[in-house]
């Protein structure tokens, strides 16, 4: 699903966000990327969504090279991907239902199917009674769940989530874990940037740690399932 060879990202101001990343993620795998703020987790997810380009190395996702992709390749990749952003990227002036339905509408899903699946996704994250509320009126945690429903509803090949449980209570973390589990069972590959052990406990997966832009060994304190990464590990 994903192959990264010596991937690096240096911003124009000289900041080196990622360096020498080597990684292979197989289809259907669950991968957690852990790290402190500024470690490069979000940058790595941005590379995978085509929001940023690597400055060195080789990065191939779902058969598409992300070194210098064409716009239509980026679109194709994004249509196969569900993403939960740290700042959610929801349309605040629209209802929760409209935000989730937009995800399917872009894929060309017909009105009736779209309505049914959007409602089901929102119900699954515990927002059945708030579907027609404007997102701007929802709490932080509720917005996070709308964002998750929007990502999962399209049954993506790849599910990327940036801190999907940040600031959530136990109940909400339960909803999120349940949704992610369903997505993985449905065949999605899951890459999550997080430092929330509650999620990792509920949905085990491979744990990678990013430190100052480089992948390091898995910390012993976490119950990771496999080794951290292939090659290039400090």
């Amino acid at each position: 699903m994903l192959t990264a060879r010596k991937v690096a990202k240096t911003y124009e101001n000289g900041t080196q966000a990622l360096r020498d990343i080597n990684l292979t993620v197989n289809r259907g795998e669950v991968v957690y990327i852990l790290g402190e703020s500024g470690a490069g987790k979000t940058t790595f997810l941005k590379l995978l969504l085509g929001m940023e380009k690597p400055t060195a190395g080789e990065l191939v996702l779902a058969g598409i090279s992300l070194i210098n992709p064409r716009p239509e390749e980026i679109r194709r990749l994004r249509r196969q991907t569900g993403a939960v952003f740290q700042d959610f990227k929801l349309i605040l002036g629209r209802t929760a239902r409209e935000n989730v339905a937009l995800s399917l509408r872009i894929l060309g899903v017909g009105w009736a199917t779209n309505k049914k699946q959007s409602e089901a996704a929102l119900a699954a994250v515990g927002l059945a009674d708030k579907m027609d509320n404007l997102v701007g009126t929802l709490s932080w945690g509720e917005r996070q769940r709308v964002a998750l429903a929007r990502a999962v509803v399209r049954k993506p090949q790849l599910l990327l989530a940036d801190e999907p449980t940040g600031n959530l209570d136990e109940v909400s973390v339960g909803y999120v874990a349940q949704m992610l589990t369903l997505a993985v069972e449905g065949g999605s590959t899951l890459i999550v940037a997080t430092h929330d052990s509650r999620l990792i406990e509920r949905l085990p997966g491979r744990i990678l740690v990013l430190k100052e832009g480089s992948l390091t060994k898995e910390p012993a304190s976490l119950r990771g399932q496999t080794a951290c990464c292939d090659g290039g590990v400090e």
Partner: peptide, 16 residues
């Protein structure tokens, strides 16, 4: 403008 950016992130083409 922000909505347009969200459309793009969800994979919408320019025509959408």
């Amino acid at each position: 403008e922000e909505e347009m950016e969200i459309y793009r992130l969800l994979g919408a083409g320019p025509l959408f």
